[in-house]
């Protein structure tokens, strides 16, 4: 077992895990942060997306031990003090989710995208989110929600 101290959504957290345990399993099974989902376990679907020091990663491809001393961001940390982030608001308003299982990953990835590029083109959004699979929506409403959120955020 390894003892790991990290910051998750800004709060200091210490946990123990097996050396070969993924960050996704740690979040879900040890810390009860079940917002990140396992859709494939091989880094292909993006449902487990979290940020590690601000960079989007598939938490199924990261070891729990690698979180030592880093900053982890999960979907649970996107809303602040009970207030939804513009992306969350626009996902709801634009019906950008049907089943909702891919939504946490999309929100994490889209938030990182907009932090990097506050005014992305449609193509930049599509390529920026190409690591996240959605099987319900055909992406149309997701892309529109991200565009609307970007516009709202630029206005402040």
């Amino acid at each position: 077992m390894v003892r790991v101290t990290t910051r998750i959504n800004g709060d200091e957290v210490t946990f123990v895990c097996e050396p070969d345990e993924t960050l996704l399993d740690v979040l879900r099974d040890r810390l009860n942060l079940t917002g990140a989902k396992e859709g494939c376990g091989t880094g292909d679907c993006g449902a487990c997306s979290v940020t590690l020091d601000g960079r989007v990663v598939c938490s199924c491809l990261v070891l729990g031990a690698e979180a030592e001393g880093r900053q982890v961001g999960t979907v649970e940390g996107i809303a602040r003090n009970g207030k939804l982030h513009p992306l969350q608001e626009k996902f709801l308003e634009f019906a950008a989710l049907q089943c909702g299982v891919c939504t946490p990953g999309f929100l994490v990835a889209a938030k990182a995208l907009l932090e990097r590029n506050p005014d992305p083109t449609e193509a930049e959004i599509r390529f920026g989110l190409a690591g996240n699979l959605c099987r319900c929506t055909g992406y149309d409403k997701i892309v529109r929600a991200v565009q609307a959120a970007a516009a709202a955020m630029r206005k402040g």
């Binding site: 917002g35 969350q88 909702g100």
Partner: peptide, 23 residues
């Protein structure tokens, strides 16, 4: 009309419980 779905909030904040989320 197009009102917000009642289960939407849980699904954008990571609170919705899917098959593998129970213990």
């Amino acid at each position: 009309t197009r009102p917000l779905r009642p289960d939407g909030y849980d699904k954008v904040v990571g609170r919705a419980r899917f098959g593998a989320d129970a213990s």
